[in-house]
Structure formats: C-alpha cells, structure tokens
Computed example of a mutant assay.
Amino acid sequence: MRTRTRNAGTRGPARAVVGAVLVAAAVLPAGLPAARAAAAAPAVPAVPAAEVWQPGGTRVEGAASPEDAPPLEPGRYTDSLEPGRTVYYRLELDGTSSDHLSVFGVPDPRATTSQGDGLRLELRTRSGRVCDAAEPVTGRRGAVHPVGDAVSRTIDPQRAAGDCTRAGTYLLSVARRQAASSDPAAWPLAIRYMSEPGLVEDARPGPQETEVGTTPEPPRAAAVARQGGTGFDSAALVGTGAYEGSLQPGETRFYRVALDWGQQLFADAEFAASPGGTGKAVPTGVGLRLYNTVRGRAVEEAELYRGDLIGIGVRTVPVAYRNRFATSSAARPFGFAGWYYLAVTLRPDTVGTVGPDGTVDVTLRVQVRGERADGPGYAGDALDAGFGV
C-alpha cells in the first residue's frame, strides 16, 4: 500500500534578485465624502478571461455510492464535481498490468480559492483496502490553476502478491475539498486511465536511479516562439532548446517533452519583468510544475512575483523502471518512459502587478540529457498504451 501527498523534486537555479519596492501611502483629506473617496481610490483591475483548459473525452457521471459506480476503461473522460461531494468509478483490473488514473480539477481563474482547496483521490479494492491515494491542492489563497495528480495500482514481479495486485473490481474515489469561503461552483474534471503492460517473466528492469548529478548550463541559443497549450492534450512539443511564450493572469500553459529510459530533464522557466505594474508582491505568483507520463505530480515549484525578472528550475533523476518503487519522493515519479509535461502558471491576482500590456513573457529553457537505455522488458505493446518514446 502506498499513500502520499507529493511535492517532490529538487530546487531550481539561483533566482533573479528582486529589487526593493517603495510603497506610497495615499492620505485622503479629512471629511472627503464617501463618493469622492471611492473615486480617489485606485481601481483594482479585473482578472481577464484567461484561456482555460477545456477537458475532452467521454462524458461520465461519477456515482455517489460505490454500488452505482460507472465502469472506466483505458481512455479519457470528463465529469464535474461540486464542493463537499465524493464520487466513485469502477475498474475491472487483471493481475498482470499496472494501472494509473489521473484526475484534474479545472477551476475558473476568476474563482475564489483558499488554502487547501483541492481533491482527494483514492484507488482501493472492492473490500476497501486503499492501494494508493493523493491529495493535490491549489496552495495559497488565490492560487488558481488546474489541480490534480495520479494514483496507481502497480504490479512488482519481484514482490509477493497482495490485495492490490490481484485481479478483480477496484474503485476510484474523487472527493472535492474546499473552504466555506471559496467559490462553490463545480469544477470540470479531466480523468485519464492508462493501463501499462506487465513485464515478461525473465525481465531485467535494471536498478533505481536516484541521483540528479551535475546540473548543466541551460541552453542559451535564441528562443523559438512556442506558446504552450491549455492542457495536457494540447501541450506544445519541446525538446532541448529555448522557447518563448506569454501568460496573462490566471493562465497555465502546458508543454510536453519526451524522456526515454536513462534520460533526465533540466528545465528553467524565466518570467520576464513587467514594467508599468504596481509592483505589488504576490506570494507564489509564478509557478512551474512537472508531471510524469501518467500525469502524476513530479516537481512543483513557485516563487513570489512583483514584476521583476524571476527564474524557476526543475532537475530530475534519470528515468528508470524501478524508480517507481524508490523510497525517495524525488525519484519515485520518474519510473516511466514517455511524455513528461511542464506547466507554467501566472496567478490571477498578479493582475495589478502585471504592466499595461496585460501579459508576462516566459522563456522556457529545456535540456534532455543521457543516452537512451533498454526498456524493462514489457510483455505487451507499451508504446501503444502510452509508455515509451
């Protein structure tokens, strides 16, 4: 059994030094009428209608009880979930494949969120034994972005069979957790079910890879224009190189990069200065997250933004099949060959910090290192199932 709330990964490169900000206190004359006082106060800019991920796939309606849970098969699904509700989905799993289910909620960027708003995912046997669980949350108050993670039922041929490795009926539960002061609107849900073939009987998946090693210099070539997608399915393709895009407050942009066995990723996101803004400091105003092949959270980093140049970086261990069984939370997400996803976010409440043009330029510098290694020895077509390069 494996239960975790992840926030794995190693820290990025040195951040840009943030300059001091002078805050001028405006004093209203005594007796100024309320109407004039309101007019004299600086207007708070409205959060723009940012481009938002629209989940795609087969529409499914999660049930309020396990007995009524609708069946899921490998593929993409959409649903929606209100605060305080828990819904269930049913899976019929064999005793050889490893199965991975990701669930993401997509709040409106203009919605109000509080500390700890998010989801609780559990994958359990029909008898109630929890095989895996995750609790993805938005973070600080106002940190609105797609929030999700993956849970797995993983077969390890070198370990004794247990309740979570037997063929039978399993249940995926998704609970929406939210503070009373947060927006009560339903979140659209993006659900992805991936079934990974088991290994051949004499498979030799190799050792774990738990060391990042030396960090290389990021690519300094001229950046290519490449705007990220709004979700996983529209993620823009990137490889070793530099790429330029932009964000407006409330937007998250996705990029995908292929990592084969033995390869590791070094990525840096540079959020440009935004002259003409208020200079207001927004904690965790900019963010960089990395998700693995099954869309599980791998690295999650965020930094304060006040309109000055700021950089965030992620460094990973080499991809190795047995990393999924590692005790290190920094290595465990990197047990799959295939697509990995980088997501860059600009919080909605940076709207006043961002200058008059309303956007912040982002440069993404990506480097894939390492020679490709042999796979673990799958018994089926792993590439067709979404695993591999």
Score class of each variant (00 low, 15 high):
residue 2 R to D: 14
residue 2 R to L: 15
residue 3 T to N: 15
residue 4 R to P: 10
residue 7 N to H: 13
residue 25 A to F: 09
residue 25 A to H: 10
residue 26 A to D: 15
residue 32 L to R: 10
residue 33 P to Q: 12
residue 36 R to I: 01
residue 36 R to G: 06
residue 37 A to M: 13
residue 38 A to N: 12
residue 39 A to E: 15
residue 40 A to K: 13
residue 40 A to N: 12
residue 43 A to N: 10
residue 44 V to E: 14
residue 44 V to S: 14
residue 51 E to T: 14
residue 52 V to C: 08
residue 53 W to G: 06
residue 54 Q to A: 14
residue 54 Q to H: 12
residue 55 P to T: 07
residue 57 G to C: 02
residue 60 V to P: 06
residue 65 S to K: 11
residue 66 P to D: 00
residue 72 L to D: 00
residue 76 R to C: 04
residue 76 R to Y: 09
residue 82 E to M: 11
residue 82 E to Y: 08
residue 83 P to L: 04
residue 85 R to C: 10
residue 86 T to C: 00
residue 86 T to Q: 09
residue 88 Y to I: 07
residue 91 L to A: 05
residue 91 L to F: 04
residue 91 L to T: 09
residue 96 T to Q: 14
residue 98 S to N: 07
residue 99 D to N: 08
residue 101 L to H: 09
residue 106 V to S: 00
residue 109 P to C: 10
residue 109 P to W: 08
residue 110 R to T: 12
residue 116 G to V: 09
residue 117 D to F: 00
residue 118 G to R: 03
residue 127 S to A: 15
residue 127 S to K: 13
residue 131 C to E: 01
residue 133 A to I: 00
residue 134 A to V: 07
residue 136 P to A: 07
residue 145 H to C: 02
residue 146 P to I: 06
residue 148 G to E: 05
residue 148 G to T: 05
residue 151 V to T: 00
residue 152 S to A: 11
residue 152 S to V: 01
residue 153 R to G: 03
residue 153 R to D: 00
residue 154 T to A: 07
residue 155 I to M: 01
residue 166 R to Q: 13
residue 167 A to W: 04
residue 169 T to H: 02
residue 171 L to W: 00
residue 172 L to F: 05
residue 173 S to E: 09
residue 173 S to R: 06
residue 173 S to F: 06
residue 174 V to L: 05
residue 176 R to F: 06
residue 179 A to I: 02
residue 179 A to Q: 13
residue 184 P to T: 02
residue 187 W to H: 08
residue 191 I to G: 08
residue 194 M to I: 13
residue 195 S to M: 11
residue 196 E to N: 00
residue 196 E to S: 09
residue 198 G to K: 02
residue 199 L to G: 01
residue 199 L to Y: 07
residue 200 V to W: 09
residue 209 E to Q: 14
residue 210 T to L: 14
residue 214 T to E: 15
residue 217 E to S: 14
residue 218 P to S: 12
residue 219 P to T: 11
residue 221 A to Y: 08
residue 227 Q to A: 13
residue 230 T to G: 03
residue 233 D to M: 06
residue 236 A to W: 03
residue 239 G to N: 11
residue 242 A to Y: 03
residue 242 A to G: 10
residue 247 L to S: 08
residue 247 L to G: 07
residue 250 G to R: 10
residue 250 G to S: 09
residue 251 E to A: 11
residue 253 R to M: 02
residue 256 R to Y: 06
residue 259 L to N: 02
residue 260 D to N: 15
residue 261 W to C: 07
residue 261 W to Y: 06
residue 269 A to R: 00
residue 272 A to F: 03
residue 272 A to Y: 05
residue 273 A to F: 02
residue 275 P to M: 07
residue 276 G to W: 05
residue 280 K to M: 12
residue 285 G to I: 03
residue 300 E to Q: 12
residue 303 E to S: 15
residue 314 V to W: 07
residue 314 V to P: 02
residue 319 V to I: 07
residue 321 Y to K: 01
residue 323 N to S: 00
residue 326 A to N: 01
residue 326 A to P: 03
residue 331 A to Y: 04
residue 334 F to H: 05
residue 334 F to E: 02
residue 335 G to K: 01
residue 341 Y to D: 04
residue 343 A to V: 02
residue 344 V to F: 04
residue 344 V to K: 00
residue 352 G to L: 08
residue 352 G to H: 10
residue 357 D to K: 14
residue 361 D to K: 10
residue 362 V to H: 08
residue 365 R to M: 07
residue 366 V to R: 10
residue 369 R to L: 15
residue 371 E to F: 00
residue 376 P to E: 03
residue 380 G to K: 04
residue 387 F to P: 01
residue 388 G to R: 08
